[in-house]
Amino acid sequence: MTDETVPDTERSATPLRVFILDDHEVVRRGVRDLLEAEEDIEVVGEASDAREALARVPAVRPHVAVLDVRLGERGGSGGDHEGVEVCRELRARMPELACLMLTSFDDDEALFDAIMAGAAGYVLKQINGSELVTAVRTVATGKSMLDPRTASRVMARLRAPQEEPEVPEEDGLDRLSPRERQILDLIGEGLTNRQIADRLFLAEKTVKNRVSSILSKLGVGRRVQAAVISGRVRSRAADS
């Protein structure tokens, strides 16, 4: 019987396996110490950046991944949600994995992108230790860890009309190279950076750089907006 099919009554007798991704060593140590103080939780690995996490998580097969939303020096600027991309990649490879996003910033854009990437929960680092332990246990059972206020914000965003890009999409599309148009089509299909890299026989870092260029040329800040533009282009082509 695999981990994914173990009933709750049996899983309770085995440790809950957790992986931690955070670029600050002090934070990783604090979360590790907090979780390992619980008899039913085992921290099976940790990483300081996206590359480490994507390499190690599939190898150790955790039940829950606690992921920092912002990683690296760019995180301080508020414009980088690399942890969300890690969530998207891991969920594509391991649909049974529960991802709990951990962040210092109450950021609606990051929250929305994390939920769209398949995160099961989103909590601020300001919460107390017992609440974090509860959040880990909650997402491990397959439940969502969003408080009512956070859930209402997500629903409001889902119901709201899609924002139009600041740059008209025709102009933005004209700026894309043939390779970038190809990558945009695959973003529209919902593929992750790693899946795009595999499909096009490119390095994952190359795809990541190309995606950043595509977002810039289209005048949008989020991957989901680029996917919407791709969908519109496909719809017009089908109608013509």
Rank of each mutant, 00 (worst) to 15 (best):
K125I: 07
M116V: 15
A156H: 07
D108V: 15
G78Q: 13
I127G: 05
S104N: 07
G30E: 04
H24L: 05
R88V: 13
F112Y: 04
D147T: 14
S130T: 13
L97E: 09
E42S: 07
A151T: 01
C99L: 04
T150R: 11
A50W: 07
Q126T: 15
V26L: 05
I127A: 01
E52K: 03
A151M: 08
D80W: 15
A37I: 01
F112R: 05
S130G: 03
G45Q: 10
G79A: 11
A140T: 03
V27P: 04
D107E: 08
M155W: 08
V86M: 10
A135G: 02
L146P: 10
V154Q: 04
L67S: 09
S48Y: 06
L34Y: 08
T138I: 09
D33N: 04
E131S: 12
E39K: 08
V60H: 09
R28Q: 06
S77Q: 14
R32L: 02
L124G: 02
S152Q: 12
V84S: 07
A135H: 05
A59D: 15
S48D: 15
R149A: 15
L102E: 11
L111Y: 11
V18D: 10
V123W: 06
D22T: 02
M155L: 14
E42H: 02
S130R: 12
A156D: 11
S144I: 13
G142H: 03
A120N: 13
I20T: 12
A110P: 07
A151H: 11
L132Q: 03
L132P: 01
G142S: 00
V44A: 09
G83R: 11
D106A: 14
A156V: 04
E89A: 03
P62E: 03
H63I: 02
M155R: 12
V123I: 14
R74T: 06
S77D: 15
D107A: 12
T103W: 06
D80M: 12
R91A: 00
G121T: 14
S77P: 03
D68M: 05
I20E: 06
L67V: 13
A120G: 09
G118K: 10
M155Y: 06
D49G: 05
V43G: 01
T141G: 00
H24K: 11
V69P: 02
A114E: 10
L71T: 10
T103Y: 08
T141D: 09
M155V: 15
S144M: 11
D147V: 14
A65P: 05
A98N: 00
S152R: 13
A151N: 01
L54S: 04
A151W: 06
G30T: 03
E82V: 03
R153I: 13
E42W: 02
L54N: 10
A37C: 08
T103N: 00
R61N: 11
M101A: 06
H24A: 11
D68K: 09
S48W: 08
E46L: 09
G118W: 00
S104C: 11
L34F: 00
L54D: 11
V64K: 09
E82S: 12
H24I: 14
D33E: 14
D23W: 06
D106M: 09
V44W: 04
S152T: 09
R149P: 05
T103E: 05
P58D: 08
A59N: 14
E38H: 03
R93H: 07
K143W: 14
E46D: 10
V136N: 00
D106H: 14
S130V: 03
A156T: 15
A98R: 02
